[in-house]
Design a protein around this nucleic acid. Structure first.
Length: 283
DNA sequence: ATGTGTTCCTGTCCGC
DNA sequence: TGCGGACAGGAACACA
């Protein structure tokens, strides 16, 4: 799925078509994604103005004039595509419904937002905006990696005593919210830390280096429009291009790009997920 | 409380 | 070509 940079790319792409605009009609084409859609979702969306379009971790949050917020998660394969937006830099005409188009929002300004998700690991829910932070999907999330609450003392403290590998710890959304498999691999490579090292056994000076590296990697990826491997698309259908900057992810058997390193990228499996790293320069 | 493995679902790719 | 198995940007859940 989209990790934080991909979700942020999608949010930015949706801004001009959605923020400040009224939802004219909502077509909910099946009863559920990962979970059932909320009661009367179409009715609750119709006629509402989107006052703000925000992001929390990997969730897109559309605050509505009705006092509710639409919560959107893209899962592994979710896309949001815009058509019919006259103000768009790259105009896309409407197309016929495609396979796996599950939700279609028609805006008063003529723009259409289509949520497409082949694997249906995505989700949508609605909640009172004032009570959003208590929503079960959001309540336990850790701090935003690009925000001030995520800092060196915080991370050192949260990893203290943890017996799980650092790779697994950084994937834990309760520790830091927004990293996924790609960016954790890339971050650990830049930090020169082995993904296998127990989180609680890494010197605090080394843990501290992770904070700025996480910020830089995510920021660079957002700048690049995210990473498109299989599913991720920007809202105009364009690919992201951060995948061309991968040092380790999906680079099994490639030579390590660290200057002076003679190593080769390995793939291992941790907690059921692929980890890519260089055993030579990541210790 | 922490750590690990399974599960949801569809599509694609690789080897035989 | 066809078929089976592995694998895919996530994360809730069940269990040790």
């Amino acid at each position: 799925m989209p990790e934080l940079p991909e979700v942020e790319t999608v949010r930015r792409g949706l801004l001009s078509a959605m923020e400040g605009q009224v939802i004219k009609a909502a077509d909910i084409r099946r009863p559920d994604l990962r979970w059932p859609f909320p009661e009367n979702m179409a009715k609750r969306l119709t006629g509402a103005k989107v006052t703000h379009l925000r992001r929390r971790s990997k969730y897109i949050l559309a605050d509505l004039s009705t006092g509710e917020t639409l919560i959107i998660h893209l899962g592994m394969s979710g896309r949001m595509l815009i058509s019919g937006d006259e103000t768009a830099k790259f105009y896309q005409p409407h197309t016929a419904i495609q396979k796996h188009d599950h939700v279609v929002l028609d805006m008063q300004n003529g723009a259409r937002i289509t949520f497409n998700d082949a694997r249906r690991f995505g989700a949508m829910d609605m909640a009172q905006t004032a009570e959003l932070e208590a929503h079960w999907l959001l309540a336990k999330l850790g701090p935003e990696p690009l925000g001030n609450d995520f800092n060196e003392p915080y991370l050192v403290d949260r990893l203290k005593g943890r017996n799980t590998p650092i790779k697994t710890a950084l994937l834990d959304q309760q520790i830091v919210a927004g990293l996924g498999n790609i960016y954790v691999c890339e971050v650990l490579h830049r930090a020169g830390i082995s993904p296998k090292r127990k989180a609680g056994q890494i010197a605090k000076e080394r843990i501290s280096t992770l904070v700025p590296i996480i910020r830089v990697v995510l920021s660079e990826a957002i700048e690049a429009g995210g990473s498109s491997l299989r599913d991720h698309r920007q809202t105009n259908g364009e690919l992201g291009y951060f995948q061309h900057s991968f040092c380790v992810y999906d680079q099994e058997d490639q030579p390590c790009v660290t200057s002076g390193c003679e190593g080769k990228i390995s793939r291992i499996v941790q907690s059921g997920r692929s980890t890519f790293y260089c055993a030579q320069c990541q210790r």
